[in-house]
């Protein structure tokens, strides 16, 4: 059987919020190493990769590798029934066709369980090549969410340009043009407030704002976000999930017009 108990149930609620705008359904692949999920959005322009390590769970048991196909809309409805303080347990019998979510209140005076049907998803996983990125930019996740929200008003595409001076986000459209320049933080007193840029070579790529805005639904997971870029390869937007794992979004660039 499979059983994973997470003391900080709010993390799973936030993971749900981070996935459900982009994906309708996905397979949760469980092994003794932990839980992994990889899926493309319907338009095959972006890919989401989630990893939750077994060590991050209060209790984790996976007798046999298991792939649970889930409708994320339904799963989101169930997880909305959990309070932020609840302990969440995911359980399933081997080759089961349902999964059960158990929510325990901190003082155990309320225990809920929800059983959901599983789906047969023939999700083939894509191979993601290891890449030594030309530029990586770490910045406050709230800052990145703000930039995506503000600039997407100006156009459907955003140009992200990284040079040794800093990183510039630009968008242009009918109403005009917006540019936001972030300089590398001088002093890094509060780690998560810093803007840290590692640049091997300058890169400038164009991306569709609507996907970037979907990615920022993961903002509540981590105070900082890391963008990785190389010429002519997908952008990576990564949010760490406490000490248990990460969610990574890959976005194909647009052809520079």
């Amino acid at each position: 059987m499979f059983e994973a108990r997470l003391l900080q149930g709010s993390l799973l609620k936030k993971v749900m919020e981070a996935l459900k705008e982009l994906l309708n359904e996905a397979a949760w692949d469980c092994s003794d190493a932990g839980i992994q999920l990889q899926a493309m959005d319907n338009s095959h322009v972006s890919l989401v990769s989630l990893n939750l390590r077994a060590e991050g769970f209060d209790k984790y048991r996976c007798d046999r590798n298991l792939s649970m196909g889930m409708n994320l809309g339904s799963m989101s409805k169930i997880l909305k029934c959990a309070s932020n303080e609840d302990i969440i347990t995911i359980k399933a019998q081997d080759n089961a066709d349902t999964v059960t979510f158990v929510f325990e209140s901190p003082d155990q005076d309320k225990v809920s369980d929800y059983e959901m049907k599983l789906m047969n998803l023939d999700q083939e996983h894509l191979g993601i090549p290891e890449t030594d990125y030309a530029c990586t930019i770490r910045l406050p996740s709230s800052e990145f969410a703000r930039i995506c929200r503000d600039l997407s008003q100006f156009g459907e595409s955003m140009v992200i340009s990284c040079t040794k001076e800093g990183v510039r986000f630009s968008a242009t459209g009918d109403i005009g043009t917006g540019n936001i320049k972030l300089a590398q933080s001088a002093k890094v007193d509060k780690e998560e407030e810093a803007v840290v840029i590692e640049m091997q070579e300058p890169v400038s790529l164009t991306f569709a704002c609507r996907y970037l805005n979907s990615f920022t639904k993961a903002t509540s997971l981590s105070k900082s976000v890391q963008l990785s870029m190389s010429p002519e390869v997908p952008l990576v937007v990564e949010y760490k999930i406490e000490d248990i794992g990460h969610v990574r979004y890959y976005l194909a660039p647009k052809i520079e017009d």
Binding site: M40, V45, L47, L126, G127, A208, P234, Y250, A252, K254
Partner: peptide
């Protein structure tokens, strides 16, 4: 969308 490339043109199917 015009000019939008697909993720599948970068990552290989197994």
């Amino acid at each position: 969308q015009q000019g939008q490339r697909l993720i599948t043109s970068f990552f290989s199917k197994p």
